[in-house]
Amino acid sequence: MPPPPTEQLFAVAAPGLEPALEAEAEAWGMRPRREEGGVVLEGPAGLHQEANVRLRTASRVLLRLGGFRAPDVGALTRGLAALDLGRVWNGTGTPRLLVAAHRSRVPAGAVLGAAARAWGVPGLARAGDLEEDDAEGLTLLARLEGDTCTVSVDTSGGLLYRRGYRQEVGRAPLRETLAAGLLVLAGYDGGEPLVDPMCGSGTFLIEGAWMSMRRAPGLERRFAFERFPGFAPAAWEALRARVQAEALSTPRAALAGFDLNAGALGTARRNARRAGVTLALERRDVKTLEAPGKTPGLVVANPPYGKRVGEGGELPDLYRALGATLKRAFGGWRVALLVPDEAVLIRALGLTGARSLPVRNGGLPCRCLLSPL
């Protein structure tokens, strides 16, 4: 018997989250290979659907359509013309093309014209970048590395942080994929208590609740692959039903959130309701906070940066108060904090010996601090 058809994917991760995405994909048996910007996955046909619906820390899932040598524009045009795009494009409409070139003798500006000639699409549109949150139309990616060109198609559509539950955000929104990534980096598996002392709109807690419930993040949204000519609705619904059946009705551990802002807590409650989870939320000042319950777990927080919330001059005092509360009230717990990459604020926390990982939040350089208490 011939081997089953296989797919090669590139799951895109936000800067710094590649290890989290690798660990997550490995846990699902997807055989990841980490590269800069994400992980390569290989598996049976339909793997792109499972990756989109399951992976919490991926920003996009790209399906590789083919690769070829492209030492010059002529070879590039011939290689593009030989690609079989039939399973993702029926020839109608105008796709968008994202071009990434590194050490290539073919100028990036010439790729759009070569693709337009090869595919007979004079009005081929140039895409911006992979961070564009565009849920409509077909987006292809041509990556030139030296003499090699690899062409992929975006299977996700809108960026995967859009789970569907967060219709309201706080003043400094945190993407769901980044929240989930920090939880994975902290070793959170949903089986221990989770506390957010500055919970804002509740993103950390809702992502943690879904992890605790074994609920896949992509069950309530649509994907670009649903518009592919080769899309099989019955097979997709069977996959969704199987993934849905794995979910528990309630979290396996307690989750609690605190915030001094009553409006933020209201937003967190409504977001949690839309996500189908119940959170213990209470208005409290971080300075007087006590650990809820006697079983230790993980404390996670995204304290204000001063870029969008509050005044920069107040931040060191706030960070000192947070650090003092963590050491006073949460002995035996672990902590994961997303903080700006500013030495004065990191020192104010007083978490000596914390593991520090570089990440980005909304384009700002940040640090994920991981430490036992």
Score class of each variant (00 low, 15 high):
19 P>K: 11
19 P>G: 08
20 A>R: 02
20 A>K: 09
21 L>H: 12
23 A>C: 07
23 A>G: 09
23 A>D: 04
24 E>Q: 03
26 E>C: 13
28 W>C: 05
28 W>P: 08
29 G>N: 05
30 M>K: 02
30 M>F: 15
30 M>V: 05
30 M>N: 03
31 R>Q: 11
31 R>V: 09
31 R>M: 10
31 R>A: 12
31 R>F: 09
31 R>I: 11
32 P>Y: 13
32 P>C: 06
34 R>E: 02
36 E>A: 14
37 G>T: 02
42 E>G: 15
43 G>W: 09
45 A>Y: 10
46 G>D: 00
48 H>A: 12
48 H>I: 09
49 Q>R: 15
50 E>M: 01
51 A>L: 05
51 A>C: 05
53 V>T: 03
53 V>S: 04
56 R>M: 12
57 T>P: 08
57 T>C: 11
58 A>W: 13
61 V>L: 08
62 L>R: 07
63 L>V: 05
63 L>Q: 06
65 L>F: 12
66 G>M: 01
66 G>C: 01
67 G>T: 01
68 F>C: 04
68 F>D: 07
70 A>L: 10
71 P>Q: 05
72 D>P: 04
73 V>K: 14
75 A>R: 02
75 A>V: 01
77 T>G: 03
79 G>R: 07
81 A>I: 00
82 A>L: 00
83 L>S: 02
84 D>Q: 07
86 G>V: 13
86 G>N: 10
87 R>D: 09
88 V>P: 00
89 W>F: 07
91 G>V: 08
92 T>D: 15
93 G>T: 10
93 G>E: 06
95 P>F: 00
